[in-house]
């Protein structure tokens, strides 16, 4: 009984506390850089598309809202022919970013994506691709991958030996 009265009293005293609500949109929210908001596709330091169309983000997506088609240019560099995220299904869990082996797909601190028409929440590659490296500057997947895709030749990577001379028997 006393505890009931005490909680009634305590709650009543809350009347004189400061209010926690932020008066959005007049007052803006300060978001952390790792906030999981709008998804973007980033570029590598040379300005090339980071996405190599490996489909891991699509596979990791629990609501299956990412779909893409990989293709390649004349040098053998893979890139997505189309890349579509249906934000009306996205739950901003960030699994796609975790799965991405090239730091291409990143979540950004932006949540202001409201639309009156649901169809406008379907983002294509041109809506997603930005001219920035995002959170992970300096990384270029093709510099560390083994294959040659017009970024570096075989054996030119930082951690690679020159290509083997297959006519040689010298150890």
């Amino acid at each position: 009984m006393i505890s009931l009265l005490r909680s009634i009293g305590l709650i009543f005293l809350h009347m004189f506390r400061k209010r926690e609500t932020i008066q959005y949109p007049e007052e803006k929210v300060v978001l952390h850089p790792r906030w999981r908001g709008r998804i973007v596709l980033t570029r590598d330091p040379d300005g090339g598309e980071r996405c190599v169309g490996c489909y891991l983000c699509a596979a990791a997506c629990p609501v299956d809202c990412i779909s893409l088609q990989a293709t390649e240019d004349e040098h053998g560099r893979r890139y997505p022919a189309f890349f579509r995220i249906n934000f009306s299904r996205c739950i901003f869990c960030g699994y796609c970013e975790e799965a991405c082996p090239t730091y291409a797909i990143q979540l950004t601190p932006d949540f202001e994506m409201g639309e009156y028409n649901r169809q406008n929440l379907v983002y294509e590659k041109e809506d997603l691709l930005i001219d920035s490296q995002g959170k992970y500057p300096g990384y270029n997947y093709y510099k560390v991958a083994g294959l040659s895709a017009g970024v570096k030749g075989k054996g030119e990577g930082a951690n690679e030996e020159p290509p083997v001379d297959i006519r040689s028997l010298i150890p």
Binding site: D64, S67, L68, I85, N86, R118, V122, E124
Partner: peptide, 16 residues
């Protein structure tokens, strides 16, 4: 069971 993109592959045509 890992099939992906079910809610996006046709989203360009109609989002439903």
């Amino acid at each position: 069971h890992r099939f992906s993109g079910r809610t996006a592959m046709l989203a360009n045509v109609a989002v439903s």
